[in-house]
């Protein structure tokens, strides 16, 4: 298995270079270094000289991909792309275009993102799997039919509606928790309840239907009939046998997102005033801060690759027949 892991990590290198290249190309199709300078220096009284100085100071005065004025390998290395990409692989993100240390920001913001994402993930998984099993338990009854109708209804509602409606109902009408805000420590719990509950409710429709489908497929298999024939109760059949055997498709969708929990949620963080990495990324895009955008896309790619690797490894854990070689 170790050989497999090393091979996968080795494959990650060209993928990351490709992602970096694509990010770079897409970003600079939309923005030029002059645009970035103007965004940082402001729109009032900015002179061409000031823009030039800003570019030189931050290394954006070089050609993007190919330096025809340089000699030999310098034609590729004395470029913005090379300058800005190489250190990323050593996880040195440098400073943002407004001069702040990106690594420091990421470390600071990771906590708030995880404070929302981890409980949402765990609670969401627990609730949706339980609901799916509950519907399967009552399959082909009115409860199942109405449950599915409810799920479709929940799926049809925009995520934004859950947030705005939830804030209005729970905080403004019932006055139970703060509308938005964040603080670290135990008192922060008050601020997390609403975004976590809303995120879980928003995920119920789609996830419950998906898991229900997986369980229904599983429940028609021979081993389930055998278990019933042995006289096991329906709950034992579902929780001990069906759930375990449905783990591979569940893990496929679940494990891959675990590392990405670090990246935070763009919408939830924005509406609930959570100072996490999701809102950091959005702010950077709005501010045309390439250094941050590039760093966040890079980290996202690394985490996604890590998630896929963990998914593969988790298969061997839930299904002894799977061997990684």
């Amino acid at each position: 298995m170790l050989a497999y892991i090393f091979r996968r990590l080795f494959y990650a290198i060209p993928i990351l270079i490709g992602v970096n290249l694509l990010t770079f190309a897409l970003f600079f199709v939309v923005n030029t270094p002059d645009d970035m300078a103007r965004m940082q220096l402001g729109v009032k009284r900015v002179t061409p000289e000031a823009i030039e100085r800003w570019k030189v100071e931050r290394g954006y005065d070089k050609p993007l991909f190919f330096n025809a004025a340089a000699m030999g390998v310098g034609q590729l290395t004395q470029t913005v792309f090379f300058d800005k990409s190489l250190r990323m692989f050593a996880l040195e993100f440098g400073r943002s275009d407004d001069g702040r240390d990106i690594g420091n920001e990421i470390r600071t913001r990771m906590g708030p993102s995880l404070a929302i994402a981890v409980p949402t993930f765990l609670l969401g998984l627990y609730v949706t799997v339980s609901l799916a099993l509950f519907l399967v338990l009552f399959r082909a009854t009115a409860l199942d039919v109405w449950g599915v109708v409810g799920c479709v209804m929940l799926m049809s509602i925009s995520g934004l509606f859950y947030i705005i409606g939830g804030q209005w109902l729970v905080s403004k009408v019932w006055h139970l928790v703060p509308i938005s805000g964040y603080t670290s420590g135990l008192d922060g719990f008050r601020f997390l309840i609403l975004p976590v509950v809303i995120s879980v409710v928003a995920s119920i429709g789609a996830n419950t239907r998906w898991y229900r489908t997986l369980f229904l497929e599983e429940i028609s298999k021979d081993y389930v009939r055998t278990a019933r024939a042995k006289g096991l109760s329906e709950t034992t059949v579902l929780f001990r046998h069906v759930l375990r055997n449905a783990m591979i498709p569940i893990l496929t969708g679940v494990v891959v997102v675990i590392p990405l929990l670090f990246m935070g949620s763009l919408l939830v963080e924005s509406f609930f005033g959570i100072p996490g990495l999701g809102s950091y990324t959005i702010d950077a895009i709005n501010a045309q801060d390439f250094a941050i955008v590039r760093a966040m896309v890079f980290i996202g790619s690394v985490l996604y690759i890590l998630g896929l690797l963990l998914t593969d490894i988790s298969y061997t854990w839930v299904d002894p027949r799977v061997r990684l070689g």
Binding site: Q167, P178, I179, S180, G273, S279
Partner: peptide, 18 residues
């Protein structure tokens, strides 16, 4: 000064007196 990126939570908190 609290950061409010969205206008709706800002407005509701104003009405609540916060």
């Amino acid at each position: 000064f609290s950061r409010e990126k969205e206008s709706i939570p800002y407005w509701n908190k104003f009405l609540q007196g916060y």
